[in-house]
Computed example of a mutant assay.
Amino acid sequence: MVEKIRFITDTACDIPLDVAENYGIDVAPLTVAVDGVIYKESYEITPQKFYQLCRECKELPVSSGVNAQEYLERYEKALRDGCTNVCVVCINSGGSMCYASANRAREEFYEEHPDARQKMEIEILDSRTYSIAYGIPVLRAAEMHRRGVALADIRAFFQDWFDRVEIYFAPLTFDFVKRSGRVSGITCLAGQALGLRPIIDIIEGKTHAAAVVRGDRNVPGAIVKIAQERAVKGTPYGILVGTVTGLAEDLSAKLQKAIGDGLAGIFSAGPAITINGGPDLLAMCFLGGKRQTGTAG
């Protein structure tokens, strides 16, 4: 039987909706609340508009994961479209309710459509990571499906990617990361007083301080140094940025010289990520060496 796969992810993957649509990827929205006004991420508010609101808001915004109804509607649409398989890729389950909601929706779907058990398999993957670190492989998986690659091989691709992907991000302001707990209060105070910029790694959903530099302009070089030491040559990498687009362009140029081609794109950080890192952030993801599943390093 010919496989017809529907890929579903969530808006925290930071892949633009028009790009996802071009690849046939269905994207379920997280929500973000700003001074009591609730928006569906990407659908009702752009990253750039959110950055502006971050400067103006009276209270720091909050986000909520995708609810089960959003997933249920997408499963039902996939069934109507004749899909044989649904592959859901979620933001790290330790940091969001999306994975739990997708599983709850699957249970409800098969209760309401018992005959669908024999027609359409729903597989839900916990990416164990954030942002473009799972958005990029979803795009690549959709490409693979278009080329006729079997689902079993796509599963293996996802497993390998999530066992190897690493994120490094630098918050250039501290209100957001202080509240999220990803940077200690002492580090935030030092950063504000001395111009120090921490570079934080996220591996297997856990954060650690990877480096500290003085001043914004030194951040790209520090990230490049880490990539030279840890990224596997010849594999793809991506850049994520908020308002500091000039630093992202500098990082891109430096990476091309240091580790070569392989840039999957420069992406704008959406609200769900910005809430934890602040609008003035710079990050990249790349593939490192193979880890034991569930371990960082």
Rank of each mutant, 00 (worst) to 15 (best):
A156G: 03
R104F: 12
S96P: 10
Y99C: 14
V177N: 07
V2P: 13
Q52R: 10
Q52I: 02
P61A: 05
L281V: 14
T245Q: 06
K40C: 07
Y39K: 01
A210K: 00
I5F: 06
V27N: 05
D18S: 06
Q228H: 02
I200N: 00
A190G: 10
T187E: 09
P137E: 09
A258Y: 03
S180R: 07
F7D: 13
Y75E: 07
A105Y: 12
L53M: 15
R128A: 08
G278K: 03
G277E: 13
T84M: 01
V34F: 11
E204C: 07
E123M: 03
G238N: 03
T295V: 11
D115R: 04
D280T: 02
A209K: 02
R104T: 14
F176I: 01
A105M: 03
R146K: 14
R55Y: 11
I202N: 12
V66T: 13
V19K: 08
A150I: 02
A12W: 00
L79R: 11
I91L: 14
A152C: 10
V27C: 07
I223A: 05
P47L: 05
V232S: 08
Q228P: 03
A141R: 00
G238D: 03
G234K: 01
D81I: 05
R230W: 01
D81L: 08
H208P: 01
L251R: 04
V232L: 10
R80N: 15
L53I: 13
R140G: 11
A210S: 03
L247C: 08
A133Q: 11
P220W: 02
V66A: 04
P236T: 06
L263A: 04
S101G: 10
R214M: 02
K225D: 15
L151I: 14
E108R: 09
A102L: 06
T11S: 11
V165T: 15
P171Y: 05
G205D: 10
A283Y: 11
V27M: 06
N103G: 14
K40I: 05
I124P: 13
N103I: 10
D126Y: 04
F169E: 02
A227L: 01
A78S: 07
E249F: 06
G277H: 07
Y134H: 14
F50W: 08
Y237H: 00
A296V: 05
F50T: 12
N22E: 13
T274W: 06
A193S: 12
D201K: 00
L151G: 12
I154S: 09
